[in-house]
Amino acid sequence: MSVASAIKTGDAAELPGKRDEDWRWTDLRGLIRQVPPDSAPAAAVGAGPFDGAAEEIVVIANGEGAAHIGVDPHGDRTVALRIVSRGDGSHAARVSIDVEADGRLTLLESYEGEGSYLSQTGLVFSLGVGAQVERVVLAADDAEGVTVSEAEVQLAAEASFGQTVITGGARRQRLQTTVRHPGGHANLRLDGVYLLADKRHADLTTVVTHEGLDGVTEQLAKGVVRDQARGVFQGRIVVAEGADRTDARMGHHALILSDRAEVDARPELEIYADDVSCAHGNTVGRLDEDALFYARQRGMPDDVARALLTEAFVGEVVERIGHEPARDIAAAWVAERLRGG
């Protein structure tokens, strides 16, 4: 049972729903009574947000397009991957990404939607020893669209995988990353930002399984929700028996800026090894009243003070993006969203 198979078979009963523990806050089965028909090929797709920052652009429109990105040993590529959805149909795509030993890949991934589509994308990342991947995801879906992105990452020793997912949500949206972490001094960073207004929904779900010695995972997710929006964060870190000297930290912090918005969080630790240091912190609330007063005492009107503090709150995540042009694009996108809301 999965979103991909529901799209393939057209059977809505295959969609995950709130009875599935991992989908309790992202109920697709309750939302979609009937799987929309297959999408027609998309017409013009226009420009993507990362066009200027990448050397190559790969477009997958309504499920059609190149499905493999490879980096040779010691190679170095910067690729913009555009997942474009147009219209009211459903479509699915699979993308495999192989980065061989000591190769480097900067993947600037964007979800660009217009319409009330149902879209599923499966990405499979495979990293060689010492490979370095930075994945920056900007999800700009339609308020009527339903998007599910499921990435599976196989890390290798001494490799590093850094990810920042930034989303404005959709009618319902799930951005999921599953990582198998072999330890061996491999480094994993899984960051996320959700900025939601109106009735939008976004679900950032991650599952990291530490399978070997000396693994590091660092995670920072932040969200800002207003109106009747709903933000979901599910982060699970599993440390298998024998995966000693694992160091894993997870933080999720959200601001609720209206009375009817909602944030649901499940930061989970599942530990089967004893020599570990794992921690998570989770806060949900509003802007710090003391900081707000401090800023206003210095002369900032209420709205200016709130905007400054909110941008700073999210900025802590955006700043961690290593690729500078991507960071600037992400920061500008975030600033626009916050001011526009």
Binding site: D288, D290, A291, F293, Y294, A295, R296, Q297, R298, G299, M300, P301, D302, A305, L308, L309, E311, A312, F313, G315, E316
Partner: peptide, 24 residues
């Protein structure tokens, strides 16, 4: 007056415990 209006008039408080403002 609101706190920021007072500040604009020129009233400044040096806090006993100044706030930390992460990210700014």
């Amino acid at each position: 007056l609101e706190p920021d209006e007072r500040a604009a008039k020129g009233v400044f408080l040096s806090f006993q415990y100044p706030l930390e403002i992460p990210g700014v």
